[in-house]
Simulated scan of single mutants.
Amino acid sequence: MRFLHCSDVHITADYFSLPFMRLGWRRWVAMAELSVGGRKKAYARAPETLAAIASDAEQQGVDHFILSGDVTAYALDPEFQMARESLGALAEDPGRCTVIPGNHDVFTPGSHRKGRFARHFGHLLESDLPEYRREGAFPFVRLVGKEAAVVGLLSARVPSLPGIAHGYIGPAQLEGLAALVKDPRLDGRAVLVAVHHAPLTLRGRADSYFHGLRDAEALFRLIPGPRFAVLHGHIHKRYHHPSTAQRPHIFSAGSSTQLGREGYWVIEVKDGQVVGGQKHVPGGALN
């Protein structure tokens, strides 16, 4: 079985054409990142690149498509809408597609309060085993074929200030995950856990206090070994740390639509184990 994993696609509206006062102060600060920081240019073609990645998933016949958060630049409705349009038919089918929110998708208290992510992608948070939900829709699980399951966790929290971007899963979801992985209906299945924040950096270390996944070690204790993988984004670099006796495989999809760094993983599952992955660029070619 094969799973396509992408992340941090950052579909970006034209902020400079929008009513300034309605954007709110958090987005006013972020507009410096768009202009001086170069993000507007880096993600100018993000909708087309995401559509190309979705097309690759269709043409390659992958079993499931996973987008591990940061669908948008700063959680505007038009950005969510463009992302859903770019995904096309994939976004209509929970059996084929999983999308979870990243910190940019809950960038303001208003976007979180209004359920903006759920308005566009909530149907993809359905669970085949809903009895394990502990925090809203999370954790949810999708049984894929007879060999795998995809689990979605929520680590994205409304930041107190722009630039504060750490995440945490929390004890309730972790308790649900602990019970879930013991369910006999998951016996013999590889379990791919999608969470936005990175449990380890490229160098195999914990990320910084204000950027990392704060309960990564608690997550590792529940899912060690080659049967399990954590699929994440947040760090805009693409890498893989193989599993050990103490932790699962870790796949960072980087920023899949960023100009000059476009790409994604195709992850292989065989006999209920995660056996590796290959980096691809849009258009199906290997990196």
Rank of each mutant, 00 (worst) to 15 (best):
P159A: 06
P159Q: 09
P159C: 12
P159D: 07
S160A: 15
S160T: 14
S160F: 15
S160N: 15
S160R: 15
L161G: 02
L161P: 00
P162D: 06
P162V: 09
P162E: 10
P162R: 06
G163C: 00
I164C: 07
A165N: 06
A165H: 07
A165T: 15
H166T: 11
H166G: 06
G167T: 08
G167A: 06
G167C: 11
Y168Q: 03
Y168F: 10
I169K: 04
I169A: 03
I169Q: 01
P171I: 09
P171S: 14
A172L: 15
A172H: 11
A172N: 11
A172C: 06
Q173G: 05
Q173N: 02
L174P: 05
L174R: 06
E175A: 13
E175W: 05
E175I: 04
E175N: 07
E175F: 07
G176Q: 05
G176A: 00
G176Y: 04
L177I: 12
L177H: 04
L177W: 09
A178L: 05
A178C: 01
A178P: 02
A179R: 10
A179S: 12
L180S: 00
L180R: 03
V181H: 02
V181P: 00
K182G: 07
K182N: 10
D183L: 02
D183W: 00
P184G: 08
P184T: 11
D187Q: 13
G188P: 09
G188S: 13
G188F: 14
R189H: 02
R189Y: 09
R189M: 07
R189A: 08
A190Y: 05
A190G: 07
A190H: 08
A190S: 13
A190R: 06
V191I: 15
V191M: 03
V191H: 07
V191E: 03
L192C: 04
L192I: 12
V193W: 01
V193Q: 01
V193D: 01
V193C: 07
V193Y: 01
V193H: 00
V193G: 00
A194Q: 01
A194P: 01
A194W: 02
V195W: 00
V195M: 02
V195R: 01
V195E: 00
H196N: 08
H196C: 11
H196W: 11
H196Q: 15
H196A: 04
H197D: 08
H197W: 10
H197E: 13
H197Y: 14
A198H: 02
A198M: 03
P199L: 09
P199V: 12
T201N: 03
T201L: 03
T201H: 05
T201R: 01
T201D: 04
T201F: 00
T201I: 07
L202G: 03
R203Q: 14
R203W: 12
R203K: 13
R203D: 15
G204P: 08
G204W: 12
G204T: 12
G204A: 11
G204K: 03
R205N: 11
R205T: 13
R205E: 14
R205A: 14
A206H: 14
A206T: 13
A206F: 14
A206I: 11
D207G: 10
D207N: 14
D207F: 12
D207R: 11
D207P: 10
S208F: 13
Y209P: 08
Y209F: 12
Y209H: 11
F210T: 15
F210H: 15
H211M: 08
H211E: 08
G212V: 01
G212M: 02
G212P: 04
L213N: 05
R214A: 14
R214P: 02
R214S: 12
R214V: 14
D215A: 10
D215G: 07
